[in-house]
């Protein structure tokens, strides 16, 4: 198998050399090479992410509108108590009995304000129990205004690699409804900026980061749009304008 490695690399190099030879033989008057080197490095760098300040009202409404267009629901709140109310309403509306949460401190704080009536599971509950949960609550580390995207970075609660992230991978994936808690100061304008922010916050990438835009969907049967295939059917974002 190690042999395959050198075989592939040798083959690539030989091919590139052949192509270069042909190009050279064709001379400056030949047709321009299809594979030319000029790299697009400079224009490609994305606009730098500015220092975090209070999010503009434009960003908040922009995010809300974009999420709405992809059949997600954005709840704008201005206090932690408001967030708890919004969450409570979602839980009551759907008649949810079993909720799983991530271990993010803000998520825990907000859930503490929610009046019971359902069973609350921590993220390390047994997997068979997780599979039965109807709703999951976790934090979104970044929100993207242009698409209504939320970034779910998962992995390492201990910070073995980079800064600690919450444990939310299955919380945001298995239940039919996912509620993300997003601080307005974590909004960025573009997808590219979110990618930049993702590396710059921890200096290192988390084991996995999912950029999620609206509920999961398919059009595999006669191209008819159906929401909720394998991922969540309902995507709610509680947007904390005060944070």
């Amino acid at each position: 198998m190690n042999d395959d490695r050198s075989k592939i690399l040798a083959s690539i190099r030989a091919s590139l050399a052949t192509a270069a030879g042909v190009r050279a033989a064709r001379g400056p008057h030949g047709s321009p090479p299809a594979i030319a080197a000029p790299p697009p490095t400079t224009e490609l760098t994305v606009p730098a992410v500015g220092p975090k300040g209070p999010a503009s009202i434009r960003a908040v409404t922009g995010f809300q509108g974009a999420l709405d267009r992809v059949q997600g629901v954005c709840h704008r709140v201005t206090s932690d108590a408001g967030a708890a109310d919004a969450l409570q309403a979602v839980i009551a509306d759907l008649g949810v009995r079993r909720v799983v949460r991530s271990d993010d401190h803000l998520v825990i704080e907000i859930l503490e304000r929610v009046i019971g009536g359902f069973e609350l599971l921590p993220p390390d509950a047994d997997r068979s129990l997780l599979l039965q949960c109807e709703l999951g609550v976790s934090r979104a580390t970044i929100g993207v205004v242009e698409y209504g995207t939320i970034v779910l970075s998962s992995g390492d609660t201990q910070g073995v690699k980079g800064t600690p992230t919450e444990r939310q991978r299955l919380v945001a994936l298995l239940p039919a409804t996912h509620v993300a808690i997003l601080a307005a100061t974590d909004l960025v304008e573009t997808w590219d900026a979110a990618l930049t922010a993702l590396c710059s916050t921890s200096g290192d990438l988390p084991p996995t980061a999912t950029f999620a835009t609206g509920p999961s969907r398919t059009a595999d049967i006669e191209l008819e749009l159906v929401l909720g295939v394998h991922g969540p059917k309902n995507q709610h974002v509680i947007l904390l304008e005060h944070r």
């Binding site: 992995g155 988390p206 999912t210 999620a212 999961s216």
Partner: peptide
């Protein structure tokens, strides 16, 4: 591909799970 502005999920995988608590 499908005419959506963006697909529902883009998942960037960088490493296997790095701690006991992670689910990957």
């Amino acid at each position: 591909a499908t005419g959506q502005p963006i697909s529902c999920y883009q998942t960037l995988v960088t490493s296997p799970k790095t701690s006991l608590e992670d689910d990957g």
